[in-house]
Amino acid sequence: DETGKELVLVLYDYQEKSPREVTIKKGDILTLLNSTNKDWWKIEVNDRQGFVPAAYLKKLD
């Protein structure tokens, strides 16, 4: 059920640097789980959840 889920576009590649982070690729469109922290957003990638720098993402309307 995708209702109410926010999507984000990945602006730059990011390689995870800790187990709490996930790797993302430029151009991916992913589900945003939590954006309350202005610097690190929690997203879902391939059934994995983790954090990436918010500056690497853009919210889609």
Rank of each mutant, 00 (worst) to 15 (best):
L33N: 02
A54L: 02
E44Q: 13
A54P: 04
Q15Y: 15
Y12G: 07
R48C: 05
V45N: 08
D13Y: 04
T36L: 10
V22T: 04
V22D: 01
L57F: 03
K42R: 10
D39C: 15
D13G: 06
N34I: 07
L30H: 15
V22N: 02
K17R: 14
S18K: 08
V22K: 02
D47N: 13
V10I: 03
L30M: 05
T3Y: 14
R48F: 06
Y12F: 13
D28Q: 15
L60C: 09
E44W: 08
P53L: 04
E2F: 14
V10G: 03
R48P: 00
T31A: 11
K25I: 10
W41D: 00
G50C: 06
V52W: 01
E44G: 06
W40N: 02
L57E: 00
V10Y: 01
D13R: 03
E6W: 14
D47H: 11
I29C: 06
E6A: 12
L32P: 00
K42T: 06
K59L: 11
K59E: 04
K42W: 10
G27H: 05
N37L: 08
N46V: 11
L32H: 01
Q49R: 11
N34E: 14
K58A: 10
I29G: 00
P53V: 02
D39R: 15
D39G: 09
V52Y: 01
A55H: 11
V8Y: 07
P53R: 04
R20D: 11
E21L: 03
L9N: 02
N37F: 08
N46F: 14
N34M: 08
E44P: 01
V45P: 00
V10L: 01
Q49P: 05
L33Q: 03
Y12Q: 13
R48Y: 05
Q49L: 06
K26N: 05
K25C: 10
T3Q: 13
Y14F: 06
I43P: 00
N34P: 03
T36A: 12
E2A: 14
G50D: 02
P53Q: 02
T31L: 15
E6M: 14
E2H: 15
A55V: 12
E2T: 14
S18C: 09
K59G: 04
T36S: 14
L33M: 07
E6L: 13
Y56K: 05
G27E: 02
